Amino acid sequence: MKIYLIGFMGAGKSYWGKQLADHWQAPYYDLDDVIVAEEEMAISDIFATKGEDYFREKESMLLRELSRQGRFLISCGGGTPCFQDNMDFMNDHGTTVWINPPLEAMVDRLKRKKYKRPLIQDLEDEDLYDFVEKKLAERRPFYEQSRVIISSDNISLDTFTEKIDHA
């Protein structure tokens, strides 16, 4: 089992990643956390000091490194599928799952943790919806290449695992 969870920030990738890895007793990695540990600095600091290009190269390298394992579950950053041919790589090496809850649900979650996210930390709450809508539209062509798409915010662990098992 090699599963990549993808989706926009606030979609629930980290939450479901932990749930599913626990359920399947599989090694779990939050790709952003792996990058933070490797770089010994917050993602916002990596973006600020080394730039997004550096971050995306590091992200792609670590994604490929982690994928060498026999089984795993990886929660990817929201932009991971959109750079460095990562989406093709993930589809070639495992099962991609796009977690796609309603836009409003993601925006509500993001309002509570803006400070942790470099792309939105300086946005006013009233500008967040438009930003997420625009950015999601840019990333949608990559996300839509997923093998499994979860478009409900009210899904149980059983339903989630069933969809993946039948992919």
Rank of each mutant, 00 (worst) to 15 (best):
N86K: 01
D125Y: 11
N86H: 03
M90A: 08
E124Y: 02
R140P: 01
L128F: 07
P102M: 10
A26I: 14
P102Q: 12
R147I: 15
I99P: 00
D127A: 15
E138A: 11
D158G: 14
L66R: 02
K50R: 13
L5Q: 03
Y143L: 05
L103N: 07
E40R: 11
K163R: 07
E144M: 11
I3Q: 00
D92R: 12
M1L: 07
E57D: 13
C82H: 04
L31T: 06
R68A: 10
S75Q: 06
L103F: 03
F8C: 06
Q145F: 09
M1G: 06
C76G: 07
D53E: 14
F83L: 08
R56M: 09
Q84R: 11
Y4Q: 03
V34T: 08
L123F: 10
R112K: 15
D158Q: 14
K111F: 10
A42N: 08
V36W: 14
R64Y: 08
D130R: 14
L31G: 00
E138I: 03
D30F: 08
Q121I: 09
S75A: 15
G94E: 02
T49M: 15
K134G: 08
L123S: 06
W24S: 06
L157G: 08
P118A: 14
Q84I: 00
T159D: 11
G70C: 07
L103S: 09
A137P: 06
L157W: 01
I43N: 00
D165T: 02
E59M: 05
D53M: 11
G10M: 12
D22E: 10
